[in-house]
Measured scan of single mutants.
Amino acid sequence: SEEWVEIALRLLELGREANINGTILNLHKEEIEELIRRLLKRI
């Protein structure tokens, strides 16, 4: 399964939302940290 691709796409999506909203992603901080942890486990 290409889970890391899904994770990377989700991170990009959150990054785009952050640019549009001008936020520092506090809302998504925990989700982002969890996604990155899952991503690093696969490398």
Rank of each mutant, 00 (worst) to 15 (best):
41 K>Y: 10
22 G>M: 11
2 E>S: 10
19 N>I: 15
41 K>N: 06
10 R>P: 01
15 G>S: 09
19 N>A: 14
13 E>D: 06
15 G>N: 04
20 I>F: 11
9 L>S: 03
31 E>M: 06
25 L>P: 09
8 A>L: 14
14 L>V: 03
7 I>H: 01
15 G>F: 15
2 E>M: 12
5 V>W: 14
33 E>N: 11
13 E>Y: 11
11 L>N: 00
13 E>F: 13
6 E>V: 13
27 L>R: 10
36 I>K: 00
38 R>T: 04
11 L>K: 00
12 L>S: 02
24 I>G: 07
1 S>D: 09
27 L>A: 10
11 L>D: 00
33 E>Y: 13
5 V>S: 03
40 L>M: 09
11 L>E: 00
33 E>C: 15
3 E>V: 11
18 A>E: 03
17 E>P: 06
21 N>V: 13
34 E>I: 10
14 L>G: 01
29 K>L: 15
6 E>Y: 12
32 I>T: 01
35 L>V: 03
12 L>Q: 02
5 V>H: 06
43 I>M: 05
20 I>V: 09
4 W>M: 07
29 K>W: 15
4 W>I: 08
40 L>P: 00
10 R>V: 11
25 L>M: 07
15 G>A: 15
19 N>K: 11
11 L>G: 00
11 L>W: 05
17 E>M: 14
26 N>I: 13
15 G>P: 02
31 E>Q: 08
23 T>E: 12
7 I>V: 05
5 V>K: 05
8 A>D: 01
28 H>V: 12
2 E>T: 08
10 R>K: 06
27 L>Y: 09
22 G>P: 15
17 E>I: 09
18 A>G: 06
26 N>G: 07
20 I>W: 11
9 L>M: 08
42 R>I: 15
32 I>E: 00
22 G>A: 12
42 R>F: 14
39 L>A: 03
26 N>F: 14
4 W>K: 00
38 R>F: 09
25 L>F: 05
43 I>Q: 03
33 E>D: 09
39 L>N: 00
34 E>F: 08
12 L>E: 02
37 R>P: 00
6 E>F: 14
10 R>D: 02
15 G>I: 15
25 L>W: 06
26 N>L: 14
12 L>M: 07
28 H>P: 07
21 N>Q: 05
39 L>P: 00
2 E>R: 11
12 L>R: 02
9 L>H: 04
31 E>I: 11
36 I>T: 01
30 E>I: 07
20 I>A: 06
14 L>F: 05
10 R>G: 04
32 I>C: 15
37 R>N: 02
4 W>Q: 01
33 E>S: 09
11 L>Y: 02
20 I>T: 09
3 E>Y: 10
2 E>H: 12
13 E>G: 12
23 T>D: 10
27 L>M: 13
9 L>N: 04
20 I>M: 05
34 E>P: 01
26 N>V: 09
11 L>P: 00
21 N>W: 14
1 S>Y: 13
43 I>L: 11
2 E>D: 09
32 I>L: 07
28 H>T: 13
7 I>K: 03
9 L>V: 05
34 E>N: 12
9 L>Y: 08
12 L>I: 12
41 K>I: 12
21 N>R: 10
15 G>C: 15
36 I>H: 00
6 E>T: 09
19 N>T: 13
35 L>W: 10
40 L>F: 05
36 I>M: 04
4 W>S: 01
21 N>T: 09
22 G>L: 14
23 T>H: 13
38 R>G: 03
30 E>T: 07
40 L>D: 00
9 L>D: 02
7 I>Y: 04
5 V>R: 07
17 E>G: 06
1 S>A: 10
36 I>N: 00
9 L>W: 12
17 E>H: 09
43 I>N: 04
32 I>R: 01
8 A>E: 02
10 R>H: 08
15 G>E: 02
16 R>V: 09
5 V>P: 02
27 L>G: 07
6 E>A: 10
31 E>N: 03
25 L>G: 08
22 G>D: 10
16 R>A: 04
28 H>G: 09
23 T>Y: 14
41 K>E: 06
28 H>R: 05
14 L>E: 01
30 E>A: 08
28 H>C: 14
35 L>M: 07
6 E>W: 14
8 A>N: 01
2 E>P: 09
35 L>S: 01
21 N>K: 07
10 R>S: 02
34 E>H: 08
4 W>D: 01
3 E>W: 14
6 E>Q: 11
28 H>F: 14
39 L>F: 08
6 E>L: 14
22 G>E: 13
